Each structure stands twice: as C-alpha cells, then as structure tokens.
Amino acid sequence: GKMTGIVKWFNADKGFGFITPDDGSKDVFVHFSAIQNDGYKSLDEGQKVSFTIESGAKGPAAGNVTSL
C-alpha cells in the first residue's frame, strides 16, 4: 500500500536519492523515473512524499512517488 515519508536527499544530476519512511523502516532508494509529475522529475530534501515499495533489481525501491 501507500506509505509516506520525507526525502532524505536527492541528487538531481544523477537522478536518484533516498526517502526516509514515516514508519521508521529502512531508507528507500528512489529513482527519478518513479516520480509522478509532468514536469521536471526531481525531489527536494525534506519534502514530504507518498510512495509504494516496488522490488527492483537492486532491492526495494520507491514507486508512484507523489509530493504531498
């Protein structure tokens, strides 16, 4: 299901970062391709987001990332 969290950091040049889930679980990798907006796909440190957990090739990653 949907989770919420805070963006820990995001490197716009490399197109990835990490989200710290509100439930205290392990930080989740986020790739820019998972960001659900029409414009420039980037996130800001400290931004609140909702997301799902998808299993990627390198382990769990955030999917369906939407800013709240």
Rank of each mutant, 00 (worst) to 15 (best):
T52I: 11
K8N: 06
G63R: 06
G24Y: 06
K14R: 12
F29P: 03
A57N: 13
T52M: 09
I53T: 06
P60H: 10
D44Q: 15
K58G: 13
D38S: 10
G15A: 03
S50N: 08
F18L: 04
K8Y: 04
I35D: 02
N37C: 07
G39D: 08
S55H: 13
T66L: 09
S25C: 06
Q47N: 08
S55N: 15
A57V: 13
K48W: 09
N37L: 13
N11S: 12
A61N: 11
P60D: 10
W9R: 04
F51R: 00
D38H: 11
M3K: 12
A61V: 13
H31F: 11
D13W: 15
G56A: 11
Q47D: 14
V30Q: 00
E45Q: 14
S42Y: 15
F29N: 02
Q36L: 14
T66V: 15
G63C: 06
A62H: 01
F51T: 00
L43S: 01
L68G: 07
K58I: 09
T66D: 08
A61K: 14
A57D: 13
T66K: 12
G1H: 06
T20N: 06
K41Y: 07
Y40N: 13
D44P: 12
S25W: 06
V30F: 14
G39P: 10
F16E: 03
E45K: 15
K8V: 06
S50A: 12
N11F: 09
D13N: 12
I6R: 12
D38W: 07
E54T: 09
S67G: 11
D38P: 14
S50Y: 09
V28R: 02
V30A: 03
S55P: 12
D38V: 09
E45N: 14
Q47E: 13
K14D: 04
T20P: 00
D27A: 07
V49D: 00
D38A: 11
K48I: 10
G17I: 01
K2F: 15
Q36R: 05
A62S: 03
K48D: 04
T20Q: 12
P60E: 10
G15T: 02
G5W: 01
K2P: 15
G39M: 10
A57K: 14
T4N: 09
Q36C: 06
K26H: 12
W9S: 04
D23E: 09
D38F: 09
K8D: 03
F10K: 01
S50P: 00
K41N: 08
E54A: 08
L43R: 01
K58D: 11
V7H: 00
G56M: 11
D13C: 11
G17N: 00
N11M: 06
P21V: 05
S42N: 09
G17T: 01
M3V: 12
A62D: 01
D38M: 10
S25A: 11
G15E: 02
I6G: 03
T4I: 11
F10D: 00
S42M: 13
G59S: 08
G46Q: 05
G17C: 01
V30N: 00
E45S: 14
G59K: 07
G5F: 01
S25K: 09
Q47R: 07
G56C: 05
G1E: 15
G46E: 04
I35M: 05
D27Q: 07
S67N: 13
G39A: 09
F51V: 01
G63Y: 10
Q47V: 09
Y40T: 12
D13H: 12
K2L: 15
K41A: 09
D27T: 06
F32H: 12
G59W: 07
N64M: 11
A34P: 02
G56E: 12
A34V: 11
H31C: 04
D23W: 06
K58T: 12
K41D: 07
G39C: 08
W9H: 04
A34T: 07
G24L: 07
T66M: 10
V65A: 02
K14P: 02
A57F: 12
I6W: 11
F29Q: 02
K14L: 13
V65E: 01
F18Q: 03
V7Q: 00
E54N: 08
S55G: 12
V28A: 03
P21C: 05
G59C: 04
W9M: 06
H31Q: 04
M3S: 09
V7F: 02
V28E: 01
M3L: 13
G39I: 09
P60T: 14
L43H: 01
F16G: 02
S33G: 08
G5K: 00
K58M: 13
E54W: 08
V49L: 03
S67E: 12
N64H: 10
M3Y: 13
F32G: 07
P21N: 04
A57R: 14
K8C: 07
F32P: 02
S33L: 10
L68K: 07
T4C: 06
A62R: 01
I53Y: 11
F51Y: 11
S42C: 09
G24T: 05
D13T: 15
L43F: 06
S33Y: 05
S50V: 09
G39R: 08
Q36N: 12
F18S: 03
V65S: 01
N11R: 11
W9K: 04
K2C: 06
T20V: 15
F51P: 00
I19M: 02
K14H: 11
T66P: 01
K14A: 12
L43V: 05
M3R: 08
G63T: 15
Q47Y: 05
F32C: 07
I53K: 08
F16S: 02
H31L: 05
A57P: 14
F10Y: 12
S50T: 10
G39F: 07
S42G: 13
K8I: 06
T66E: 13
K48C: 07
F51D: 00
G17R: 00
S50R: 04
I35V: 11
F29G: 02
K2A: 15
G56Y: 12
D22Y: 08
G1D: 15
F51H: 01
D44N: 15
V49S: 01
K48H: 15
P60G: 06
G39H: 07
A61R: 13
A34Q: 11
G39Q: 10
K41C: 07
S50W: 10
E54G: 07
Q47G: 07
T4S: 10
G24N: 10
S55R: 11
G59H: 07
S25F: 08
D38N: 12
G39V: 09
K41W: 08
F18G: 02
F51C: 02
M3H: 12
V28W: 03
S25H: 06
I53H: 05
K41H: 10
F32N: 07
V65N: 01
E54F: 10
T66C: 06
N64S: 11
W9V: 04
E54Y: 09
L68W: 05
T52A: 06
S33R: 11
I6V: 14
Y40C: 10
V65P: 01
K48F: 08
T66R: 07
F29W: 07
E45Y: 14
G15K: 05
K41E: 06
G5D: 00
D22M: 10
A34S: 12
T52R: 04
D22I: 08
N11H: 09
G63P: 02
E54C: 05
N37T: 15
A12N: 11
Q36H: 10
G15N: 03
D22G: 05
H31V: 03
D38L: 10
H31E: 03
T20A: 13
